[in-house]
Nucleic acid binder design. Structure first.
Length: 264
DNA sequence: CTCAGTGTTCAGTG
DNA sequence: TCACTGAACACTGA
């Protein structure tokens, strides 16, 4: 589920469910891996009774702004997501935290694979994970010349550089592949070798793809049909897009789907 | 049974 | 220090 558009969609869901309300009951699963730097017990103690003012996001990190500190900081890992419901009996499988509001609405984060993280921080924006993030394509997208300068310092393959959260926060595997496909840039090109014009294209596609995915609430079925996204997992049968073969290679430690006929 | 996956971190290397 | 690479982490489903 979780790249920038999925996390932004979850943020909006959480803000609708919790915004302006008091958390009258907090449940925390006994999971010492997902809870990082805080025990489930302490988490419950610190959060119960607080009011949620709003929900923030940067890259794939999300936090609840409460009327007192510390604040919960959440990351979905590979399989995290939110559920909203209104009876305790509907608490979903693999739940890690459940927040119940004064009006009966409940929100839970689930994470079967347990790569997600739940932390408690006094000031998430200036602390560890978030402070190390680069620009957020939705909040902070740099001008093309600035991006050109950033990429000029990187010798790794552009695919790997796009996945680096300290450069572009929120970009994950499918967004990186989609951007490179639509910008017609081969994933193994060294970032510092891209021309100013290619960087301009890359920037434009990054912005458009992230915005569109957020516009449709990260619902894959509503992604434009022309997107590589729909074909990227059709491995075996020699999948094609617009008549061109899609190949799969490991780049930057991740499976990369790309189209040699289109990307240079 | 084995492997890869919408992610992050850390050890090891240059 | 920095940039980069690859493995590890935990679990599910093809």
């Amino acid at each position: 589920m979780p790249e920038l558009p999925e996390v932004e969609t979850a943020r909006r869901l959480a803000e609708r469910a919790l915004g302006g309300k008091r958390l009258v009951a907090v449940a925390a699963a006994d999971d010492r891996i997902v809870y990082e730097g805080v025990t489930p017990r302490t988490f419950i103690k610190k959060v119960t009774g607080a009011r949620v003012e709003c929900v923030g996001r940067r890259g794939k990190q999300m936090w609840l702004e409460l009327d007192r500190r510390p604040w919960p900081l959440l990351h979905f890992g590979m399989t995290g997501r939110f559920w909203v419901y209104d009876t305790a009996a509907d608490r979903p499988r693999h739940w890690k935290v459940e927040l119940a509001c004064d009006d009966g609405v409940r929100l839970a984060m689930t994470d079967p694979r347990r790569f997600g993280r739940i932390r408690l921080q006094h000031d998430p924006l200036s602390d560890k994970p978030i402070a190390a993030l680069g620009f957020d394509p939705l909040l902070d997208l740099p001008r093309s010349d600035v991006l050109f300068g950033l990429l000029g310092k990187r010798r790794g393959p552009i695919k790997a550089v796009l996945l680096d959260q300290s450069l572009a926060a929120g970009v994950g595997n499918w967004i990186a592949d989609e951007v490179l496909y639509q910008a017609r840039i081969a994933p193994r090109r060294r970032a510092c070798d891209l021309s100013a014009d290619e960087v301009k294209r890359l920037r434009g596609k990054l912005s458009a793809i992230v915005r569109k995915a957020v516009d449709v609430e990260a619902d894959k079925q509503r992604f434009p049909r022309t997107w590589l996204f729909h074909k990227r997992w059709g491995k075996q049968n020699g999948a094609t897009i617009a008549g061109h073969r899609i190949v799969h290679e490991t780049i930057g430690g991740r499976t990369t789907a790309w189209v040699p006929k289109v990307q240079r």
